[in-house]
Write a protein that binds this DNA or RNA. Sequence first.
DNA 1: ATGAGTCAGTTTCGATTTTCAACCAACTAC
DNA 2: GTAGTTGGTTGAAAATCGAAACTGACTCAT
Lengths: 155, 155
Amino acid sequence: MRTQPAVECSIQRTLDLIGDRWTLLILRDLFRGVRRFSRIQEDLGIAKNLLTDRLGTLVDADIVEKVPYQDRPVRHEYRLTEKGRALSPSLLALMRWGDRYVSGGLAPTELVHDECGTRLELQPWCTTCNVPVAPTDISSRPGPGRHIGTEETRV
Amino acid sequence: MRTQPAVECSIQRTLDLIGDRWTLLILRDLFRGVRRFSRIQEDLGIAKNLLTDRLGTLVDADIVEKVPYQDRPVRHEYRLTEKGRALSPSLLALMRWGDRYVSGGLAPTELVHDECGTRLELQPWCTTCNVPVAPTDISSRPGPGRHIGTEETRV
DNA sequence: ATGAGTCAGTTTCGATTTTCAACCAACTAC
DNA sequence: GTAGTTGGTTGAAAATCGAAACTGACTCAT
């Protein structure tokens, strides 16, 4: 969307790709199984030219792929790639925040653990210690993908 | 931002509030400790009138608060409220996705577990079973905040 | 084989947003 | 008094968006 020399932040890089008003909603629909142009269009109320544009961007970015579901006439549907499915935690996090702070704690839809039916939380997880990590136990440091002037950083 | 009758989805409700091109970047700056109008403005390169507008929206939504840091002249800085800080997992999730899929696995900044220095992952977590939950073990169901026609839903 | 319908777009154009630059107000420091 | 800083506001040009009309490829019913 924008063309900046190479931003030193993965959040910004990500938002440059999918951070506009519609794209995350389109992705939500794809996660929900709404995969066809016209279905997405009527579900979101997005203008068709914009939907064309956004889906094109997502396909170019390899987040979504266009697969034919019939010949004669050839019709396609849009499916998440592995890269696209990897956005699941991001959407889940936004959803849980909205449940708590916008929907007043009353989730319109709940995501639960299959085995026990408990509603899921999303937590930072340490793969070494195998424990959830509280925000107070998180530090940041410059990583191998170059670094920015380090400040008090707590995300 | 938009005024829709009462959308039945926490993702959409959330994105209506913070899902524009700049707001999440502003919040990222606040998490990083960049809290003053002029600092944010130059860091992001956002137009000042838009920054005024977006900060106002965030303050109205109680995501950010404006606190004076000096008198004479009174100057304010913008701080995350508890509601704002609760967006941390969302930003973290977007960051981790960007690390992997946009920055080619080379994180510009790493968030690590204080105690052991391991880079953090963000995982759905079952508070009952006390285990991380894989995407395949997640189901969805209508919650108390009203419900939408249920489809194959996997977020 | 004509006519209506569906799906996935493209085109056009007026309305809205964003950007960019200039200006302003309050105060400090010199 | 002059310059500088911070946190804005204002207005005009440029970019983007939204709504509706139009297209093309095909099906199905008559």
